[in-house]
Simulated scan of single mutants.
Amino acid sequence: MTDHDHDHDHDHARTVAPMVDEITDFEVLEIALRELCIEKGIFSADEHRRFTEFAEQIGPAPAAHLVARAWLDPDFKELALAEPMTASREVGVDWLEPTGFGTPSDFTAFEILEDTPTLHNVIVCALCSCYPRPILGNSPEWYRTPNYRRRMVRWPRQVLSEFGLELPEGVAVRVQDSNQKHRFMVMPMRPEGTNGWDEDRLAEIITRDCLIGVALPKPGRTANVITDTRPAVHPVD
């Protein structure tokens, strides 16, 4: 073999190295903990698969229908505010599923926060990323970032403005901090221009961001996508 051939083989070996996505420390921890739980018989691999499939298919549609139904039915609204777990089952969400006893991170006290003409609610988890997943689905990436978590509790109006939500001075902002024992969801006010709409049509404009409190429902806005935000400019100390 010539020196040229040796160099060529060496270069080829570098270019065909297997491409493996980088794995985070959290993913390593999850894999280790999952395998240990399966080994100890806490749950089986099949049970883990079924729960993973369940978690991946949930989304904010049930919550949107809950709010839309509350807008249309005063009795259901009263139920939703007084017994939100019962109201959740009315729109197809049983917080005990799929395990039959809930999960440590999700089966907790649940409260629906009602917006009024003088009060706007927004949810956050200042400590980590607690979120009502059974009824809202998986949390958006920005909700889990330290930037959102630490700034929302200090400068809520500025952060809301970065989502494009400018509230009048006469509207107070209440930031509700989720934790291990409590989960929250916002019930925004019904917007003007929706008279005569049925539940399905109303539910289309109640996006995930509205249910978190960083947006307001508006006719014509139906996309449940991560809202584009602009950078903060000179946060108030």
Rank of each mutant, 00 (worst) to 15 (best):
H4Q: 05
H4L: 14
H4W: 10
H10R: 13
T15L: 11
T15M: 09
V16W: 02
A17H: 05
M19F: 04
V20N: 01
V20C: 04
E22Y: 07
I23S: 12
D25R: 08
I31W: 11
L33P: 01
I38N: 06
E39M: 09
S44M: 08
A45E: 15
R49N: 14
R49E: 15
R49L: 15
T52N: 11
T52Q: 09
F54G: 12
P60D: 08
A63C: 13
H65A: 11
R69M: 07
R69T: 12
A70L: 01
W71P: 03
L72Q: 14
P74D: 01
D75N: 07
F76M: 03
A80C: 13
A80F: 03
A82D: 03
M85Q: 10
T86P: 05
T86D: 09
S88C: 15
W95A: 09
W95L: 13
T99G: 05
G100M: 02
G100D: 06
P104R: 00
P104V: 01
P104S: 04
S105L: 12
D106N: 14
F107E: 04
A109R: 14
D115C: 13
N121L: 02
N121C: 08
I123S: 01
V124E: 06
L127M: 14
Y131H: 07
Y131L: 03
R133E: 15
P134K: 12
L136M: 14
P140D: 01
P140E: 07
W142K: 00
Y143L: 06
R144S: 14
N147L: 11
R149I: 04
R149H: 03
R149C: 06
R150V: 11
V153Y: 02
W155P: 00
R157F: 02
R157N: 03
L160F: 02
F163M: 05
E166R: 04
E166F: 12
P168L: 02
A172T: 09
Q176E: 11
N179I: 09
N179E: 06
N179A: 04
Q180R: 13
K181L: 10
K181M: 09
V186E: 05
M189H: 00
M189V: 01
M189A: 03
R190F: 04
N195W: 02
N195P: 02
G196Q: 08
G196A: 06
A203G: 10
A203E: 08
I205K: 07
R208G: 07
A215V: 01
A215M: 11
K218V: 15
P219T: 14
R221Q: 14
D228H: 09
T229Y: 00
T229A: 03
P231S: 03
P231Y: 00
A232P: 05
A232C: 00
H234A: 14
